[in-house]
Design a protein around this nucleic acid. Structure first.
Length: 806
DNA sequence: TAGAAATGTCATTCT
DNA sequence: TCAGAATGACATTTC
């Protein structure tokens, strides 16, 4: 459990980081607020729920150095991080978006006004709690995206800052055309437009009739209570699926077990149920995710498994009660996700059938932002869970292609490279694919976050790639691998081809590129050609034996097939691999030598043609003549395949392989000879084979050493050239500095000499006097005549020495 | 078809 | 003294 917790926690943290990367705000500080002390305690408190989170990832990448994971300052850190992100986003291209928030405003029959934004889970919660008097459920500061049809009483377009300023008296009875005097004409027109569009979609005016809708809500509440009671009674097995069915998807198909969608009574209920479904699905899929009372918050809370067990008590009551037993295995989660996507497929199908095709077209084109089209997009919002936890103003996503150029948003990676769950209820799904558009910018430049957060099939297009993978698998296998490869490519300077090759090597079990396709003559597929051995270190020693010589450089089982026909042949033995360190064949070692790059000879001239060439004609099979021809062909093939020594050994009926002859130590070799009674000719041949084999290896080693010597010499020459160039530069610098010093000395000498005066105050003539510098640093004014006399005695001995030498 | 390159083989020397 | 390594020279084969 601890491992799973850590595993999922890391995944969620990574997912949160990804959300922050694409500009989606994660209000961790909201979760850390004082309104939810237990939550804060779980995260920051003494429990171990937080210790497993590897915040070093954050601290390594962000500005959180030195911040202890349990530090209370972490919320300040997150707040600062969010603000920093907002500041950084200022320089990004932001498509101006219409910030539209829909508020569910109605007056309770008995109590004060309930003003709740139609946002996410709160909408469903608000409907449930509508009869309860004054209860503010919505996020006071978060903007919301409305689910179409969920606007039961009126649409109010408000900026985010004004959301909380809607006075109860202003929002009263909007649906009855008792519009507030504070509403502008634009608001009224907007309301009318939305209203007409909803009516066009089939939502009759009765939908917005509060009394009829209230009845439906009451009925729905009763159903929910019943279903919850049943869930409590039957919390195991497929209870969560049954709960879903009872909540909105209708009966279960007896054969397939899938939920059969049924026509919902109203768009309002549809939306509410969809949100509830999403909550339930999220709860069921991620039992550790706990819904909070903050609809505007995204960050899921990790349960403290040590205290809460596999299920976490929901603050929302039975609505978020655990629906699933503990299913830790990835298979179970994957199964759950398949069920989720199946349900959503059914929903999507239902809507597509019911919706006007022209409307679908408009919905598909409305992905560029939250506009009226997206608001009335039935396929988007009427039935699908919308992540309204994400602030709408944060939905003004910059073009993610700027941040991830060709990276993990590459459409080639799949239509949905990352579908993640756990971003926060009620939106359980997050898909970063381009959805119904292949243009990445069209998706991530969109302000309609539903285009981003909803899976593509919910956006009106099916990617056809099957069911999505669970969060963990996607994060750790696809996305992170992609990011890792991308990072690797960026850091290491890999070009895409190299990265692709690297991926192939990762995919390979052995990590070696056998590249058997380059050895067409290999009938068994295990033998590599000489060219491949020249181009790959992994198969560097695979060809020598089969080509010409008898020595066993091969580490492959190349000649085993032929050994069956005779006593000789390549009998691979593991101990012979020690002779295969022919690394000089690895061209990568000499990759820096341009003169060696073009060397890619195929010395498989002793290899037989490709198996397709050897295969006899189909018509000749079964005939004796054809059989003889086949045998003859095989014999020829064997002859060609084997080296001369092997053929000789086979002709002389040597009872052991050439590899043994060559590679066995002397003692074992002699013992082998003693075991078999061989004739003189056989013994001579065996000794010749051994001698030639040894010599062949020696020759190869010798050539390797030669090449190494040449390379070393070349490197030495290069080093010497570099040293020479460096010394020349240093010499030039020294000469230059020496010249400057001489010039300074000369000028100083002239200045000092010009200032010298004799007893009568006259300057000394430069032709008669000069300055001399003693070793102690003193300067003497010496007549030139004396200087010449001092220098002459020292010159005379030199002359004498020269004369003596002569 | 000539030439380059790789490789095998022989003779010789050295260890 | 012998086995084996090292190496120059030459042959063979492929490209």
């Amino acid at each position: 459990m601890l491992y799973l917790k850590k595993y999922l926690t890391e995944g969620l943290i990574q997912f949160t980081i990804l959300l922050s990367l694409i500009g989606v705000r994660v209000d961790v500080d909201t979760y850390l607020s004082s309104q939810l002390p237990p939550l804060r305690e779980i995260i920051l408190g003494p429990s171990s729920a937080y210790t497993q989170t590897q915040f070093h990832n954050l601290r390594n990448t962000l500005d959180g150095y030195g911040l202890h994971p349990k530090s209370v300052d972490l919320d300040y850190y997150f707040t600062a991080r969010r603000l920093l992100g907002e500041v950084r986003s200022l320089d990004r291209l932001q498509v101006p978006s219409t910030e539209l928030s829909a508020w569910l405003v109605h007056r309770d029959a008995e109590g004060p006004v309930v003003s709740s934004p139609q946002s996410g889970s709160s909408s469903g919660i608000a409907l449930e709690n509508a009869s309860g008097g004054l209860e503010e459920v919505g996020n006071p500061e978060g903007s919301a995206m409305r689910g179409n049809g969920s606007l039961d009483q009126g649409y109010v377009q408000e900026s985010e800052e004004n959301l909380g300023a809607v006075a109860p008296e202003d929002s009263n009875e909007l649906h009855n055309d008792s519009r507030s005097n504070n509403l502008t004409k634009e608001d009224i027109d907007l309301i009318d437009i939305l209203w007409r569009q909803d009516i066009d979609l089939g939502a009759g005016r009765e939908v917005f009739d509060y009394s009829s809708r209230q009845k439906e809500e009451e009925e729905e509440e009763e159903e929910k209570k019943q279903s919850e009671e049943e869930e409590e009674e039957e919390p195991t097995g497929d209870g969560w699926r049954n709960g879903l069915n009872q909540l909105g998807e209708g009966p279960v198909d007896g054969e397939t077990g899938e939920c059969i969608p049924q026509q919902l009574p109203s768009l309002v209920d549809r939306t509410a149920l969809s949100l509830q479904e999403c909550l339930r699905l999220l709860e069921a899929t991620f039992p550790f995710v706990e819904e909070t009372e903050f609809p505007g918050s995204v960050f899921p809370v990790l349960e403290d498994s040590s205290e809460e067990g596999p299920f976490t008590s929901s603050s929302q009551g039975p609505l978020l009660s655990p629906l699933l037993p503990e299913t830790d295995s990835p298979l179970d989660r994957e199964q759950q996700w398949q069920d989720i996507m199946a349900i959503m497929d059914l929903q999507d199908m239902e809507v597509n059938e019911a919706a006007d095709p022209s409307f679908n077209t408009s919905s598909a084109s409305s992905s560029s932002g939250v506009d009226m089209g997206s608001l009335t997009d039935f396929s988007l919002s009427a039935h699908t869970p919308i992540n309204q936890d994400v602030s709408l103003h944060q939905a003004s996503l910059p073009s993610c292609s700027q941040d991830f150029p060709g990276g993990f948003f590459n459409p080639e990676l799949g239509s949905c490279p990352m579908e993640a769950v756990g971003a926060g209820p009620p939106a359980a799904l997050l898909c970063l694919s381009s959805g119904n558009s292949s243009d990445v910018n069209s998706t991530f430049g969109a302000t309609n976050l539903t285009d981003v957060l909803l899976p593509p099939r919910l956006n009106g297009s099916s990617n056809g790639t099957g069911l999505p993978d669970p969060l963990t698998g996607l994060l750790e296998e696809a996305l992170l691998d992609e990011i890792s490869l991308l990072d690797l490519a960026l850091v290491e300077g890999f070009n895409p081809a190299q990265a692709s090759r690297l991926r192939e090597e990762f995919d390979s079990d052995s990590g070696l590129s056998l590249d058997s396709s380059q050895s067409p003559a290999s009938p068994s597929g295990s033998e590599t050609s000489s060219s491949s051995s020249s181009s790959s270190s992994s198969s560097s020693s695979s060809s020598s034996f089969s080509e010409e010589g008898a020595v066993g450089y091969s580490t492959d089982s190349e000649a085993v097939d032929f050994e069956e026909g005779g006593a000789v042949g390549g009998c691979y033995q593991p101990e012979f691999s020690k002779f295969c360190r022919m690394s000089y064949r690895d061209p990568s070692r000499f990759g820096h030598l341009p003169q060696l790059e073009h060397v890619a000879h195929n010395h498989t001239y002793n290899l037989a043609p490709s198996p397709t060439d050897q295969s006899p004609a189909p018509g000749g099979v079964g005939k004796k003549g054809a059989g003889r021809e086949k045998q003859q062909l095989q014999q020829d093939f064997l002859d060609k395949q084997q080296s001369r020594d092997e053929r000789r050994a086979r002709a002389m009926k040597i009872p052991f392989s050439n590899e043994k002859i060559v590679h066995l130590p002397v003692e074992e070799f002699n013992e082998l000879l003693s075991k078999h009674r061989l004739s003189e000719a056989q013994l001579a041949l065996v000794r010749d084979i051994r001698r030639r084999g040894k010599n062949k290896m020696a020759a190869q080693n010798c050539r390797k050493r030669k090449l190494d010597t040449i390379l070393n010499l070349e490197q030495g020459v290069e080093a010497l050239r570099r040293d020479k160039a460096r010394l020349l530069r240093e010499k030039v610098e020294f000469v230059r500095s020496l010249r400057q010093m001489k010039q300074k000395m000369q000028s100083l000498h002239q200045e000092v000499f010009s200032r010298l005066r004799d007893e009568s105050g006259r300057p000394y003539p430069a032709g008669e006097f000069s300055l001399q510098y003693s070793s102690d640093g003193s300067v003497l004014l010496v007549p030139r005549r004396l200087c010449d006399e001092q220098q002459q005695p020292s010159r005379k001995p030199e002359k004498k020495q020269k004369e003596k030498k002569k």
